[in-house]
Write a protein that binds this DNA or RNA. Structure first.
Lengths: 101, 101
DNA sequence: AAAACTCATCGTATATTTGCGATAAGCAAT
DNA sequence: ATTGCTTATCGCAAATATACGATGAGTTTT
């Protein structure tokens, strides 16, 4: 980008929807969320077993989903249990529903 | 990416949903689609007037939405009339609905 | 204390995305 | 034919995203 200063601004809902959509914009992350929907929760290792990518890459995708607010991690030493963040999930759901009429 | 060969494969629905989500993953493109939903159709110039970015950038975003199948362009010389592609829109809608339960 | 296990982070390489101005392409009107 | 209008494409620069192996941090078990 040439214009690094001055962010382009949009309405709050537009930004929020785009942010959620962006987080969903990779098949690995869709696969992770689908898995979490079934299992309701799971550990990172479970995902590494299921997905055709390395552990570090899985971890990175989890981080992005966490940043977007779609999932949350809970410490269950020595593992970490990931679940869908229901509050934000419902917000995302509502935004997409509204968007598609 | 280090592994440029051999694409990682996911289920068809997962790939399709991710592709649509990726296309929606930018506020400008959300804004464009929202505008098209209201107006049902519009010209590129209308969007350039409304959006805070240059004409060439608007054109690029339109191209991406077209590649994703979410919109289609119709020649109305000397302008181009863009509309939502209802068929694919409905497919996307169904995929998101199903995804969010 | 040491070894083992689980997961995140770092460093790196490459690909893709985003944005702009400039230019080209297509058509309409003069 | 030339001009003007509308939109796409090109060429570039900078930012982000994607992926990996290696390493680190934190626990648990031995």
């Amino acid at each position: 980008m040439k214009r690094s200063l001055e962010h382009i601004e949009y309405k709050e809902d537009t930004e929020a929807l785009a942010k959620f959509a962006k987080a969903l914009g990779h098949p690995t992350r869709i696969a992770i969320l689908k898995h979490l929907e079934n299992q309701s929760c799971c550990f990172t290792g479970d995902l590494v077993d299921v997905l055709p990518i390395s552990q570090s890459t899985v971890s990175q995708h989890l981080k992005e989903l966490k940043n977007a607010g779609l999932i949350q991690g809970e410490l269950k030493p020595p593992k970490i249990k990931y679940c869908i963040n229901q509050d934000n999930w419902n917000i995302a759901k509502a935004l997409f529903q509204q968007f598609f009429d």
